[in-house]
Write a protein that binds this DNA or RNA. Structure first.
Lengths: 228, 228, 228, 228
DNA sequence: CATGAATGAGTTTTCATTCAT
DNA sequence: AATGAATGAAAACTCATTCAT
């Protein structure tokens, strides 16, 4: 059988190095996509290696071939998810906007990103349950902070220079407020809905919440300027 | 044994019905306390029934006797955790304070509670990973919302009446902002620390954050009053 | 508490020996009835002691008090079920009927009994799965055979004497044919229905089958008389 | 290892895909055979997965790998047992025999099959205790009825055409009588023996019973022809 | 690069039975 | 006669991982 395959349709049956490399990349990407959903849905312990394999073109063996272990796969998923927002933030151009508008733009970028990447938000929650033990070992970690903080720092600096923003708040504090709001809306929506019967993702309230995150940050930053 | 029993009820070895009932309650409470730690630490799937039993005076069998299943135990843990903050909120007396001070007191109550109940915060995160599927089936659910919202609603009403607070924000929106901030500080501190190298629980920054949650809410509520 | 009970309402609270004995008998009977259903429904291994106790006024402890073990309870159920048909057969009066009519009456008695005692039929099937290991140890066993065989033997004898029935068949053979037919109709109706889509208990076919059992036995008994 | 694999396929230690597939089939068949005995012996609840595994070359894990659950294994056993008699019936050739002889041949086929397949008879009894809940969900069910009924129907038709058999009895009725007799002899032999002290499987009585099932059916079918 | 079969160690759950009063 | 609590042993089932080709 193997011999026969080699004979007939040489060009097609025999894969070149490039094709095989492309296949490999596709297999890896496929695995990563399915694993992202599975881990985001069920957490690290709740996710099933069998289930991930079953939803892929490949077999379970490939997971171990490419990622070494369930943990290795999870780490790859996590890094890939973080890479997404990092890129977005790095692309944001706010230098041409006045500090207040720039700040609002950044807040809304986070708002929009989280809403359209619920898996990322879930993975962050899951990783926190694990006390960031995986993320801490990631080699990609050092590059994760820079973009967000740099952009934010720049806006704040301009705001301070213009006498618009209060001075007792730094970039990480602002980042925390924006994140807290935008992540809560996604991450805690289920218990919030269960307890208070309000759907934080109701499209009818979206504009309200989107304006709210900007207002929240700006009112806070511009309050009593010069006082503190 | 039978002979001894026939003699009297004075003995030390002889336990009355009341005592046994008290023991049973202790067994249950013991189980619940240990399970709270285990579930908060490892999530639902990650928690081990064996491990919980091992850390108790009793045996694994008792978990099934009292709670029926791992899931039943988890639900009991969840309900018990929610009951804690519900009671706190219900006890809060803010009628004698002006709306701004009352609002700040409520925000700080949440801030303090979450900081001193990290297990509660973790359980909420875990339950959200499960899309609140357990909480939704809880019979205790209907009583969970009332206290927080009632108190908040009262403060807001007084603030509106006095022309102090903006009108386009309701109690649930305010609750969301307070919760988002206070929960994020606990729940996301690990990834935050890993990525930004800042410990959100650093005692040296505690007062700063505690003031911040009040400021955040109040600046937002008192902004441009009369405009919206 | 116990002392108080002794004082007040003496007549009512204090149960006489007779009352207690009656209560005991009722408890036993209650247990037996529930256990009959449970064992007939699920077999010996499938039946649950907890379930039986739960469906009774009493507690699980009483099962062990009265019957010693699950097995003891099952044996009591079995003996009680056999006692029912034994009594019926013993009461049958067929001396005044001619042999053929008498035989048909006996067949129809079995037919009717089994139809109205499906639990008995199920218990017999269950006991056969256990290779009659319980029944064999029953002290009631010796009395179980007599009535059926005596009556049948009498009819056969009269039939032989009158030259009506063939001689190469004894009472147990006839009993076997009648039982096989009447038990099969009850015991195997589920697989029969599943495979052939015919309900052997369909009321519309009842008369047909009832006549059939008599026909079957009589045609067989009266065939080629004198030949064999 | 890797080096050896690269050399050739001649080796003894090297198993080809085909061989492994054959092994897998053997593992499955082995499991099925052992499980048949265990389930037939102890019923569904009484059977032990551990016990089945212990009597096999493989491990308990494999039962779940191949059959998914205890129930899945039981269902496979049941289907396999039914397949046996279905094949036998389908192979029976009776077209060349006159209706009476053909009918007797069919009855004796059932008689012989049941006697040599006591496990099948026990499994049917067990499945009836479960009200055929498993069999009803079997995908093999639709094919189970056809052979038996087709053959029987053909014989009956010929018998009617020749004016030999009564007309008020259909194939399923005849099948029921034959089954009832042949199954009872196996399935109820234990209680029969316990109560009446007669062994229905006594080799000395075998010929008598084998003739009896044919007589029973034929006397009944040929009785009073033209009357009903 | 790929794959079906296999597995050991663990994990939840069940169940008849007994204890202490 | 009665009862709620307790239990050990066993049962079904699961899961990440590896083997052999």
């Amino acid at each position: 059988m193997t011999e026969e395959a080699g004979v007939a349709e040489e060009g097609v049956a025999e894969e070149g190095v490039a094709e095989r490399r492309r296949d490999a990349a596709r297999t890896r990407a496929d695995l990563l996509a399915v694993a992202t959903t599975e881990f985001a849905d069920h957490g690290f312990s709740g996710a099933r290696v069998d289930e991930i394999a079953a939803r892929t073109r490949t077999t379970k063996r490939m997971i171990y071939y490419y990622f070494g272990s369930k943990r290795g796969l999870y780490l790859a998923v996590l890094e890939h998810a973080y890479a997404g927002i990092r890129v977005l933030e790095a692309q944001l151009e706010v230098e041409h906007l006045d500090p207040a508008r720039a700040m609002r733009a950044l807040a809304e970028l986070t708002f929009d990103h989280h809403e359209s990447h619920p898996d990322f938000v879930r993975l962050v929650a899951i990783e926190n349950i694990h006390r960031a033990e995986h993320l801490r070992t990631s080699e990609a970690l050092p590059g994760l902070a820079a973009p967000a903080v740099d952009v934010l720092g720049g806006i704040l600096e301009r705001g301070h220079a213009a006498g618009l923003f209060r001075a007792d708040v730094d970039a990480l504090d602002v980042h925390m407020v924006i994140s807290a709001f935008c992540i809560f809306r996604l991450a805690n929506r289920h218990t919030f809905q269960a307890v208070f019967d309000r759907d934080l993702l109701d499209p009818g309230r979206r504009a309200h919440y989107r304006r709210m995150v900007g207002d929240l940050v700006l009112e806070y930053l511009t309050a009593h300027v010069g006082r503190a």
